[in-house]
Design a binder for these strands. Structure first.
Length: 905
RNA sequence: GGGCGCGUAGCUCAGCUGGUCAGAGCGCACGGUUCACAUCCGUGAGGUCGGGGGUUCGAGCCCCUCCGCGCCCACCA
């Protein structure tokens, strides 16, 4: 570390990269107890997190910044506790997202993937991945992520691909995977099936179309029907009415004619039909509507598909064949209008299903796909959370989790894409045998034919993501990593992927490894803009974390995200907040600069023994040590209960408004005299700063590491006696986490005594501001201390300095009765303060001020008297009552003194 | 149709198992160029903790209800 004088302002730009490289090169991110190294001890319990793998070709956004900050915080905390800690990084191939990127790039060349073929397409995609795949991991490094990059994984790695295949085959062998035609969500833009979760519904204005289903053989009789998708009329195979609906009884069992096509279909009854809605009669299109599909099954209705994979009308659509679904909708409706079949159309708010990725309207279609029979897996996953093997934080999400798993439908896992894990199934062209295999087969086990064709589809990306916590550790191999680090400890991610990812990992973990994949699920919220709006390009309110880091530093961004969030709740982020925390980083830096320079002034001092040091301990010393001890306990408790934000806030408050604002100011006085006291003070400064840096390190790793290095170098040079209790480890990242101590009696006393000093100082400062006494002007004062006189005498220099009193003209006495003209009187509990301000004093003003204070004191007195006279005194716990009694005594004391003052005015 | 979250100083938000918790940052007002920091220091104004009811000696914190935002799940044509 350079020993050159520290710059006035913390220069994060020159620091962050250097520090990160140093950490990474020194191997600090690797677990301390590595099962692959000699000397491995399996009795240590490790702390492990698997990173939520970002899209391999993605770019950093605030969501990443959030989870990286949060996970790095947990990781650094455990690492500092001396626990073998592993954070496994990696990326996801992100089937649809990546494939869309490549197709977009192709389109710029005027090409489609079909034109270049599967092989070429995959070649290009891999090339793209090689080119851009490192960007996101570099960006994650910038955030300070202390992941073990030597264990980085990618979902399409050979090892993970083997895991995927193993998982598929096992499920198949257990009969939990099947293939067949089902009604699925079809994305016509992407030309693939998508799962229920990948469909998002949006409210959009549309129309409800009313028309006539003419009874077969009748020119006049009809059943009125309403639909939002007229083109599906082409696939209708029934009209349903409610069995008890008198309006349509006469038609039940008869047949109606499909408009334009002329097909005859039955009129049936089904309880599902809502008599109140629309016309009370429902057209049934089993081929293109999930409800209709279910009704069709109940009534054995034929299923007619009328759309092709691009959502154009197919051969079943008669004259509309070849037309786009919306074009066909209009044309059919116009033709029906001409045929006199139209009743009316009215505006209607639709719930439109759209593809999460592509954005286009998803079409329910019959399609042959692969599915996972999910109920058995879901049951186990429910049980794991119910019995506490997996704990979800915040707890309210367990209900959401239960609700989803209890109503789960089979999972469509095949995608008609090219980028992903190919389904390990082959079809024998000779005998039709279906071969599901771990290794690519060369010939048919049944007929021996070599004419095998592999299923063209790939698996849903989330199929491989579900295996992530164990596939990254080597599963299905029993590797040392898998044996030691699995199951992992915490799964930290946004609540928006609870179903997509978290639930599936739990299901898969239990199914394939027989264990829960992690013990704790910590869910954070979404990052929104400063007014709570979703960030989006169209609003133009997107905050780019990279820009923020460039301008304000990584520590500032991390601290803002960590302290600004509570588990499971969304966070509103504004640049103002990051700026405030940039200032905090600078505050840390400057407090550090002060301590470093203080150390230089005490260099070479004789070492003090314990007794000497205890002798020299001032009230301020005792106070800051007491507050620090309390902070350590609070932070530990808050970390244990996952209240990281609150912990950060407390450290911030302690550091800025207690250590920097008060102790450092007093330390200046204690240092000024030199000698043993100065040396003892320096020790305390080192101790408090050192401990604060340790506590802050998981939040703001860069500035703390950098400063700690300087502190250590300077302290070691100054005196061996300055070494702190846990010791100077080789770097802060691996330094020991402060061990909280038991609360001690002296702490309470020190805090109470020092707060009297603070109150006195504040009262005087307050008055100076009120009376416009110029800052810097030293004024005389007399303090009448009563029973606190001794403390005041000891603290005279401190009070004088902080309140800018004239130390030469500061009198401290036990009691005083006479009053001098031109004095202002302040009352702080049992202490009276006389400030001779001469001409600045106005008797009427003084009277008013004292009366106001007396009113306040008396109001408190009567409130407390009432309280203590009531049932409170008997029912509340003794310490609580005692506290209130003391308050009352204090207020009475104050009131008495105020009265006396008023009298003498 | 279910479920959940939020509503605390002008703004953005903290407030652990109910007992100085009525707080922070920003903003605002006033005053400050002394050797850690103007990315700073000191002082101050500002809120019946959404409304109403209840439990309790005591409630932002628990219960009920109402109002206003937001989100998730769900097959209403």
């Amino acid at each position: 570390m350079p020993s050159s004088p520290l710059p006035k302002t913390y220069d994060f730009k020159s620091t962050e990269k250097r520090i990160y490289q140093w950490w990474e090169e020194h191997g600090y991110f690797k677990p301390s107890n590595d099962p692959n190294e000699p000397g491995f001890d399996p009795s240590f319990e490790p702390f492990v997190i698997s990173i939520p793998p970002p899209n391999v070709t993605g770019e950093l956004h605030l969501g990443h910044a959030m989870f990286v900050s949060m996970e790095d915080l947990m990781i650094r905390y455990h690492r500092m506790k001396g626990i073998p800690t592993l954070w496994v990084p990696g990326t996801d191939h992100a089937g649809i997202a990546t494939q869309l990127q490549i197709e977009k790039a192709l389109a710029k060349e005027g090409l489609t993937r079909e034109q270049i073929g599967r092989e070429e397409f995959l070649r290009r995609t891999w090339a793209w991945k090689e080119k851009y795949g490192g960007i996101i991991t570099q960006q994650i490094r910038r955030l300070g992520a202390s992941c073990d990059w030597t264990r980085e994984r990618f979902t399409l790695d050979p090892g993970l691909s083997r895991a995927v295949r193993e998982a598929f085959v096992r499920l198949w062998e257990k009969g939990l995977i099947y293939r067949g035609p089902r009604l699925i969500n079809w994305s016509p833009g992407l030309k693939t099936a998508v799962s229920d979760l990948e469909v998002e519904y949006s409210q959009e204005p549309g129309k409800l179309y009313y028309f006539k289903y003419m009874l077969a053989g009748s020119e006049s009789e009809f059943i009125p029907v309403a639909t939002t998708r007229p083109e599906t009329i082409l696939g209708d195979t029934a009209v349903a009415v409610h069995p008890e609906d008198p309006r349509f009884q006469q038609y039940v069992g008869r047949r109606v004619v499909v408009p334009i096509l002329g097909r005859e279909i039955p009129v049936i009854t089904d309880e599902y039909v809502d008599r109140e809605f629309g016309t009370g009669a429902l057209k049934i299109t089993p081929g293109h509507d999930p409800n209709d599909y279910a009704i069709g099954e109940r009534h054995n209705l034929p299923v007619i598909s009328v759309l092709d994979e691009a959502a154009r009308v197919n051969g079943n659509g008669g004259p509309y064949a070849g037309q786009d679904r919306f074009e066909a909708r209009n044309n059919l409706w116009e033709d029906m209008r001409s045929a006199g079949l139209v009743i009316k159309e009215e505006p209607y708010l639709l719930n439109i299903p759209r593809s999460q990725r592509g954005g286009e309207i998803v079409e329910p279609m019959i399609s042959t796909q692969w599915f996972v029979r999910i109920q058995p897996l879901a049951e186990a996953a429910l049980q794991a959370v119910r019995d506490g093997r997996v704990r979800i934080i915040p707890e309210r999400f367990t209900k959401v989790y239960y609700n989803w798993l209890e109503n789960i439908e089979d999972w469509c896992i095949s995608r008609q894409l090219w980028w992903g894990h190919r389904i390990p199934v082959w079809y024998c062209q000779a005998c039709g045998e279906v071969i599901v295999a771990r290794e690519d087969p060369t010939n048919c086990p049944k007929c021996g034919s070599e004419e095998l064709v592999q299923d063209p589809d790939v698996l849903d990306t989330w199929f491989s993501s579900g295996l992530w916590p164990f596939s990254t550790l080597g599963w299905p191999e029993e590797t040392p990593d898998y044996r030691y680090f699995y199951p992992t400890s915490v799964l930290e991610t946004g609540y928006d992927i609870l179903f997509f990812w978290v639930a599936r990992m739990i299901m898969d973990g239990l199914e394939f490894t027989g264990q829960v994949p992690f013990h704790t699920v910590y869910l954070h919220g979404l990052i929104r803009d400063e007014h709570g709006r979703k960030m989006s390009k169209t609003y133009g309110n997107v905050i780019d974390p990279l820009e923020v880091m460039d301008e304000l530093g990584t520590d500032a961004l991390r601290f803002t995200l960590l302290v600004g969030s509570t588990p499971g709740n969304d966070t509103n982020l504004s640049i103002d907040k990051v700026e405030a925390n940039r200032n905090f980083a600078n505050k840390i830096w400057n407090a550090g600069r002060f301590v470093v320079s203080a150390l230089n002034t005490v260099a070479g001092q004789a070492i003090l023994d314990k007794a000497e040091e205890a002798n020299l301990r001032t009230l301020a010393d005792a106070w800051i040590l007491a507050r620090l001890a309390e902070l350590e306990r609070d932070v530990e408790r808050l970390f244990q209960s996952h209240q990281y934000g609150e912990a950060g806030r407390q450290i911030y408050d302690f550091f800025w408004s207690e250590f920097a604002d008060w102790y450092v100011e007093i330390a200046k006085l204690q240092l000024a005299g030199g000698g043993a006291r100065a040396f003892a003070t320096a020790r305390h400064l080192v101790h408090v700063l050192d401990t604060s840096l340790r506590l802050l390190h998981p939040f703001t790793p860069f500035v703390t590491e950098e400063l700690w290095g300087h502190l250590k170098a300077t302290a070691q040079k100054a005196s061996p006696a300055l070494k702190p209790a846990p010791g100077w480890e080789e770097s802060l990242i691996c330094a020991r986490w402060p061990e909280p101590s038991q609360p001690a009696e002296w702490e309470t006393q020190a805090v109470a005594d020092f707060s009297l000093v603070m109150e006195i100082v504040r009262a005087i400062r307050n008055l100076r501001a009120e009376k416009n006494v110029p800052p810097g002007r030293r004024i005389p004062a007399m303090l009448v201390g009563g029973e606190r006189t001794e403390i005041l005498q000891q603290q005279a220099a401190t009070i004088a300095a902080l309140a800018q009193l004239d130390a030469q003209a500061l009198e401290i006495v036990e009691s005083q009765t006479e009053r001098v003209e031109g004095q202002v009187t302040l009352v702080v509990g049992s202490v009276e303060i006389y400030l001779p301000l001469g001409g600045l004093v106005d008797v009427a003003e003084e009277r008013a001020r004292l009366e106001k204070e007396l009113d306040e004191a008396e109001a408190q007195i009567s409130r407390l008297e009432g309280l203590l006279a009531g049932p409170f005194a008997e029912k509340a716990p003794a310490p609580v009552v005692q506290k209130e009694r003391e308050k009352l005594a204090n207020y009475r004391d104050t009131a008495d003194r105020l009265k006396a003052q008023l009298q003498s005015l």
